[in-house]
Design a protein around this nucleic acid. Structure first.
Lengths: 226, 226
DNA sequence: GCAAAAGTGTTGGTTGTACACCCATGA
DNA sequence: TCATGGGTGTACAACCAACACTTTTGC
């Protein structure tokens, strides 16, 4: 088979893109417009070009779907089972990215017929081994949230402490005590309280915060937080 | 060039094998017998065969050098810079393994002229991007030691608490308080004190311990320890 | 008897956790 | 005035870090 020959021993990138809608962690998935797995939902990905490094390939995919650049993205894991792709031996290097869900509208692209946000606890059956890829990505996200500050990439510029708490709760899948959370997170000193409050809310208006990016980056380096 | 064509767009495994000699963390490196980088020191690795999954490939390499099977091994990271290999586009999936240094003698193999243990703080300049691979592996090892029990794979069946402490010190690159270490590690409950002590030592004989493997595995799952 | 490593407790500070009420706002 | 989520303090337990001396053994 021609396609089979051409695809023999090559590799692709898959890109798990996480967002947070204020309540749940979501992931951006496409509906495949082509065989194999036509019409299946899948993690967006593409073959890596001959002269393309891996990170740029991952960024290319991210940009083609979201228009976003310079986004947090990190290598996740490489999946290489011999039979994972029906057209030949294709190993895939999975990346994951964190994006602010409000800053763009996903757009279909060459390899995607439809594109949508899916809550990570209501995933359909996916193409290829993509359920395994997503499981690994979610596990990594949880791990990260335990070890480092998280949120800069997932929240808007200004956010309330409750939003941040709900983010942690959504990632970790547990409830957090409001008072203890506030104490802990404010003591870590990477939040800047703003002189600005919510308006038009039917309750006491919450203060907005933003991230101190230097401090945030520094804590991320060190690991250990949370 | 024929070789270039044949190697176009394929992938390899590299296998960082850590051991502990009682004092320092060491890593098993080969001297390459072939071009490219002939005579350079390198992390052992090989191309992945057409019908070979990644883990089996990593195990094959480990076994050919050490004779060992069923050893702790985990995927580390995938390195895929376009120009990382002079003969073509070869991305490499790095694994790392932990072995007990006393249970075997490394043996040269098809791809290795010489093979030796190197202390991780006295590494030479390595072939390809292998210094970066090792740096990542050491970083991962440190991270692991902070989050999980470690040692089962690196120590002999029976060991003293001082040996275990020196292992942690070697990995983390810091000194640990003897009393606090004992308290902490024994409270975690994955050690079994044996009715056996050192003999022929010019000081008070230390008790031997062994690992409770179920408990150890369970704590490893959970993460969080240490 | 001396050198070398084993083994052992206490204290003070810090951190984590559980828990309940009043406040500001829009409807 | 009611419903909603914002904001606040305390007490107890667990954990962490610092620290020095006695014991056993071979030489």
């Amino acid at each position: 088979m021609e396609a089979k020959k051409q695809l023999h021993s090559t590799f692709s990138i898959d890109c798990v893109i996480f967002g947070f809608d204020g309540e749940r962690i979501k992931v951006l998935l496409i509906e495949r417009g082509e065989e194999p797995y036509k019409n299946f939902i899948a993690v967006p990905g593409d073959l890596v070009e001959e002269n393309e490094d891996l990170e740029p390939a991952a960024n290319r995919i991210l940009k083609s779907l979201t228009g976003l650049e310079d986004i947090f993205m990190e290598q996740l894991y490489t999946f290489g089972k011999v039979d994972r792709h029906p057209l030949g031996r294709i190993i895939t290097v999975a990346y994951y990215a964190l994006v602010n869900i409000d800053t763009f509208n996903p757009k279909a692209s060459s390899f995607a017929r439809k594109i949508d946000w899916w809550a990570i606890d209501e995933l359909p059956e996916l193409a290829f081994d993509h359920n395994a890829i997503l499981a690994k990505a979610i596990e990594r996200l949880r791990w990260m949230a335990n070890m480092q500050p998280i949120g800069l990439e997932l929240l808007p510029e200004k956010f309330t402490l409750s939003q941040l708490r709900r983010l942690y709760e959504a990632i970790l899948g547990i409830e957090l005590d409001k008072r203890n959370f506030r104490r802990k997170i404010t003591k870590m000193d990477f939040l800047i309280p703003l002189d600005e409050k919510q308006i038009n809310v039917a309750h006491k208006a919450a203060r907005y915060y933003s991230f101190n990016k230097e401090k945030y980056a520094q804590l991320k380096e060190e690991g250990k937080a949370f």
